[in-house]
């Protein structure tokens, strides 16, 4: 009796979970529908299939500039954050020193800080010092919010690291740098690639900080924001969103694949949550 009741509960739970997934995917699924829809209004019923909105994107010069800016910002952010994240993750995993917990806590703070606070905090000194806003100010802000993600991804890679490998290399006469290059780096490389991909994806999509800190060169999300006001631009924005969605999914699948490979190399089980929590 109790068993059948429990099976009933399990059934309701799975129905709920599936409904929840529909809720999660509802807006995402609309994206390609409207991107390929031959109508100037973004509404149902759908019209014919078309790829003209993608052609419009191809012909929009301002968009290309924004894409170039965003790629530059996202690439720089990914590299800087991963370098900073890797050294912090390694320091935290390998060494014991005073003040580790509070310092690490402070470095991870942007993870829970509202983005508008990070944006305002960077804007005030820039204004005070009379510096001009540019893509570099955006990068500075993005590195701040991406480094904690990088640390979260890489700390599991460094924590699972077997220090006897490192000792063996040193005993066999390798220098510290050589050990790092030839022993440590290859083992954590997949984690590094995963961190690069995640930071790239976060930076590419980040809006609030970019909105506050861009000068005349806008990034892609800031460009999208400026276009959302014009109803006629919406179908092409849907097409752009579809491309971004496809790109993010590819990057994420790659990042996940590298993260698992990193874990496998060290003979540990990859945590299912991606090390983010």
């Amino acid at each position: 009796m109790r068993g059948s009741g429990r099976r009933g509960a399990a059934k309701w739970l799975s129905v709920y979970a599936v409904t929840y997934m529909v809720f999660l995917y509802a807006p995402v699924i609309l994206l390609p529908l409207f991107a390929f829809n031959d109508a100037t209004v973004v509404a149902f019923p759908l019209s014919h299939f078309t790829t003209k909105w993608f052609v419009v994107l191809w012909q929009t010069e301002a968009l290309h500039g924004a894409v170039r800016n965003s790629l530059m910002v996202a690439l720089s952010t990914a590299v800087f954050s991963t370098v900073l994240g890797a050294s912090a993750a390694r320091a935290a995993a390998r060494y014991r020193f005073p003040g580790k917990a509070p310092v690490m806590g402070f470095i991870m703070l942007p993870l829970v800080l509202p983005e508008i606070i990070v944006a305002v905090a960077l804007l005030v000194p820039i204004m005070q010092m009379g510096l001009s806003l540019s893509l570099w100010t955006v990068i500075a802000g993005h590195v701040l919010i991406c480094t904690p993600f990088s640390i979260a991804i890489l700390s599991s890679a460094f924590q699972g690291f077997d220090t006897s490998l490192e000792e063996a290399s040193l005993d066999l006469g390798e220098t510290r740098l050589g050990t790092f290059r030839r022993v440590i780096l290859p083992l954590v490389m997949p984690g590094i690639v995963s961190s690069l991909l995640i930071c790239f994806t976060i930076s590419l999509d980040e809006f609030i900080i970019a909105f506050f800190l861009t000068g005349t060169d806008v990034t892609l999300p800031v460009y999208i924001w400026s276009q959302l006001r014009f109803p006629t631009k919406l179908p092409s924005i849907m097409a752009l969103g579809t491309i971004l969605l496809a790109l993010s999914v590819v990057l994420l699948v790659l990042a996940e694949w590298f993260r698992r490979r990193a874990a496998r190399r060290q003979g540990i089980e990859a945590s299912v949550t991606g090390g983010l929590v």
Binding site: V83, L84, G85, S87, A88, R90, A91, A92, R94, Y95, R96, F97, P98, K100, V103, M104, F106, I107, L109, P110, V118, A121, L122, A140, G141, V143, L144, T147, I151
Partner: peptide, 21 residues
């Protein structure tokens, strides 16, 4: 060991100090 750890952490900590604190 403590010195090594602190040295390794210093770029990231320095960045957080300069750009956030």
């Amino acid at each position: 060991e403590a010195r090594r750890g602190l040295l390794l952490l210093s770029p990231t900590a320095g960045y957080a100090l300069l750009m956030l604190a």
